[in-house]
Design a binder for these strands. Structure first.
Length: 514
RNA sequence: GGCGCCAUCGUCUAAUGGUUAGGACAGCGGCUUCUCAAGCCGUCAAUAGGGGUUCGAUUCCCCUUGGCGCUACCA
């Protein structure tokens, strides 16, 4: 039975690198029908942050990564570590060290000066028992250090292959701090063994510590688990992803409105991909569970590139929204014909016009819900108009609901605009052309009785052919007249939302400007 | 400094001892019932350098270079 764990220290919020580690641990367990557990490594009391644990748990739940066991809290297990370190002392594989911080600092400084690697000089390694008793009785503080074996330590990393370190170059690691709390190295090894972790999947920054851990397993007489060291997530300058160069906490991205699907998808593909020539990139968590394999994880670090995140986010927004639209359409009209002409772009053909109307209403209400409290109340007085208007700016709302009002205002309040807006040099629309187009458009629209998207399009296309000009030469002045804006939805949509009366009024107004 | 890890387009990456080295993002260009956007199509763009092994290497090996990580009573 495969067992993995995510073992963060609650020193703040969940880091995106941590999220990816958690995700890979989770995916590996799922893929292999194993179990995934959460363990909180809070043995550093100085770095304890109030609320960090709750935040961590909430964030994991939000993205949909669930654990089968835990959370286990290391600070509640200190007795276990104490017992275990005692075994190591008894068997001579760890020893008490009474050296003061001052002595250690001085020692390291000297070593550095002499171009030597700073390492503990083992002053306390062979302290006589009597002296230990004496110092302890006198209340002297001490730590427990691991007696690092001076031998070659080899192991096979699932991602990196064979790796080896010379024990002689590795410091006698502190296992137990003077405050009675274990260090990461001890607690981690003890817990991983006790919790029967089969695969330790963690960030690459732990690779140099792995020989210490292997030595510890050996000292305890335990079988070490498999190790897999994940490539780092990087800043744009290729340094380890840090707060200084942008947002690193998952919560920051949640706040910015990124979807969990997008965050998961993006992070999963940073350092991993399904391989085998697979070119699809949009994967749900469930699909990732199926596709994941640790062998396909990269060795090199990956830059955390927000542009790609934005793309994933957009794809997921569209996909999720379309899924809902499809559901709504089918509920309204089981006979509805849905075609996806373009990527992520659905066309709905209903069997009855009433169904289409209802669909637009429901669709509009959905959009309204996304930005409701951002709109002035008076806009709701003509609900039908508001809902239609929302549908015409659907994509903008999906992009950023906070911007809805900016895209919507002109439907309700036409602001004054300069005469030149009605012209367009590139399309060959001067004032004369604009005036003629407005006049022709108004004439044809006045005659139109059945006012809908379809008929509006037909009518105005006829206007174009009647005058024998290019589309834009008719549409641009009309669109400008109806919106009073440089950018807006298309002219058919505008006329459709505004209704006949308001449409003609706005065209008249524009014509009077010339 | 010591120890270790890593190296394909700007970025994320695919593939293979023999390919026109593929895709995606970004960029650029174009298309569409007008503008912005979206979408579609196209385009630019890479095997760090040097040695080997081999008929042939981007792929395997070595060196160099570069990048990164670790080097705490932090994790």
């Amino acid at each position: 039975m495969i067992r993995t764990r995510f073992a963060p220290s609650p020193t703040g919020y969940l880091h995106v690198g941590g999220l990816r580690t958690a995700l890979y641990c989770y995916l590996f367990a799922k893929k292999n029908k194993g179990r995934f557990l959460l363990r909180i490594e809070d043995t550093d009391r100085e770095r304890f942050v109030e609320g960090a644990l709750e935040n961590l748990i909430d964030t994991l739940a939000w993205v949909g990564i669930s654990y089968d066991e835990g959370p286990y809290i290391q600070s509640q297990r200190t007795e276990i570590y104490r017992e275990h370190v005692q075994k190591l002392i008894d068997s001579g594989q760890a020893y008490r060290c009474f050296c003061t911080k001052e002595r250690l600092d001085e020692m390291r400084e000297n070593q550095t000066k002499m171009k030597m690697a700073p390492m503990y000089d083992r002053k306390c390694l062979d302290l006589p028992e009597s002296e230990i008793q004496e110092k302890t009785k006198a209340g002297e503080k001490f730590v427990v250090r691991q007696k690092m074996p001076y031998e070659l330590i080899k192991f096979k990393d699932l991602i990196r292959g064979n790796v080896q370190f010379d024990g002689k170059t590795i410091d006698d690691q502190v296992l137990m701090k003077s405050d009675g709390f274990p260090t990461y190295h001890l607690a981690n090894v003890v817990d991983d063994h006790l919790m029967e972790i089969t695969h330790v999947i963690r960030g690459e920054e732990w690779l140099p510590s792995t020989p210490k851990h292997i030595a510890l397993y050996k000292a305890f007489g335990w079988q070490p688990p498999e190790f897999a060291h994940l490539p780092l997530l990087l800043n744009a300058d290729r340094s380890k992803l840090s707060k200084r160069q942008g947002d690193v906490s998952v919560e920051d991205y949640i706040k910015k409105g990124y979807l969990k699907e997008a965050i998961i998808n993006f992070v999963a593909f940073l350092g991993w991909n399904p391989g085998g020539g697979e070119e699809a990139e949009i994967f749900s968590l469930e699909e990732l569970e199926e596709a994941f394999s640790i062998e396909k994880v990269h060795k090199a670090g990956a830059i955390f590139n927000l542009e790609k995140l934005d793309w994933f986010n957009w794809r997921w927004k569209k996909r999720l929204f379309n899924l809902e639209l499809e559901k709504i359409a089918k509920e309204i009209d089981p006979q509805v014909n849905i075609t996806s002409g373009r990527k992520d772009q659905l066309n709905f053909v209903f069997s009855k016009p009433e169904n289409e109307k209802e669909f637009i209403t429901t669709r509009g209400k959905k959009l309204l819900a996304m930005c409701n409290n951002l709109l002035p109340k008076e806009y709701s007085s003509d609900e039908s108009k508001l809902l239609k208007a929302l549908v015409t700016i659907e994509e903008k709302i999906l992009k950023d609901p906070k911007e809805t009002l900016a895209h919507l205002n002109f439907y309700f309040r036409l602001s004054d605009y300069p005469q030149e807006l009605l012209t367009h040099v590139k399309m060959g629309v001067d004032l004369n052309r604009a005036a003629a187009s407005l006049k022709a458009g108004k004439e044809d629209l006045e005659k139109l009785e059945n006012w809908n998207l379809q008929t509006l399009r037909e009518t105005l296309m006829k206007t174009v052919s009647r005058l024998g000009v290019k589309n834009g030469q008719i549409f641009w002045p009309l669109r400008a007249a109806l919106s009073g804006l440089e950018f807006s939805p298309g002219v058919f949509e505008l006329a459709w939302v505004l209704g006949k009366e308001e449409t003609l009024k706005r065209i008249e107004l524009a014509a009077n400007k010339i």
